[in-house]
């Protein structure tokens, strides 16, 4: 087992009590889980770190009894999500309706918007920040955390087609605006 092993192989080693495997899994998904948690938590929030570390601590303690039916990554994300809902309940706050975001027509990136940014040489980081929240989350899960469309669909409880639509919108917006800004201003 090494850092390139698949989640399933790593999980088997975790069940056997190998702390190194646990560390690999933690580091592999922590940045993505933090991003996801911050998306769900009231802004700004410092709770994300604690919620995720606690979730992993629990997983380690119960590793022998945990039964994963879907995939390791979706299990992690869904565990973190339900802990965030617990957090909301404990604070007596309303849980944000994240699904409403998805069923609503995604914000369109109007051509006019593209023109505004045309004159600037923009950093990719900035362009990513312009993506609609949900599209950005999905793009980053796929790009940075290497999560498959299918697992993203399971985690966010949407269809694979919907994930693909978000991915397509993200990549085509980034491509268009990146090249629009870079070709015109000569940078």
């Amino acid at each position: 087992m090494d850092i390139n092993s698949t989640d399933n192989i790593i999980w088997n080693h975790i069940v056997d009590g190998e702390e190194k495997a646990f560390e690999i899994l933690f580091i592999r998904y922590y940045p993505g889980l933090i991003r996801y948690a911050k998306n769900l938590l009231p802004y700004p929030s410092d709770e994300a770190e604690d919620i995720i570390t606690d979730a992993f601590f629990k997983i380690w303690q119960q590793r022998e009894t945990i039964n994963i039916h879907t995939s390791v990554v979706s299990y992690l994300f869904i565990t973190v999500r339900s802990r965030i809902y617990d957090f909301y309940r404990a604070k007596r706050m309303c849980v944000p309706v994240e699904d409403a975001l998805d069923h609503a027509e995604p914000e369109y990136l109007i051509p006019d918007n593209l023109l505004v940014y045309k004159e600037l040489c923009m950093e990719m980081e900035y362009l990513i920040s312009l993506l609609p929240k949900r599209t950005r989350l999905i793009y980053q899960m796929n790009r940075n955390d290497n999560i498959t469309y299918k697992d993203i669909a399971v985690i966010l409880d949407i269809s694979v087609n919907s994930v693909k639509t978000h991915m397509y919108r993200a990549i085509s917006f980034l491509k268009e605006s990146y090249y629009a800004s870079h070709n015109n201003s000569g940078c």
Partner: peptide, 27 residues
């Protein structure tokens, strides 16, 4: 073009994860 965008849009930094794991490990 897609390749350039794909490469340039990778944003990942594991330092926070490494630190967080150290704390978890202590626990």
């Amino acid at each position: 073009e897609v390749k350039q965008v794909w490469l340039a849009s990778y944003q990942r930094d594991d330092t926070a994860a490494i630190h967080a794991f150290q704390r978890l490990d202590k626990k």
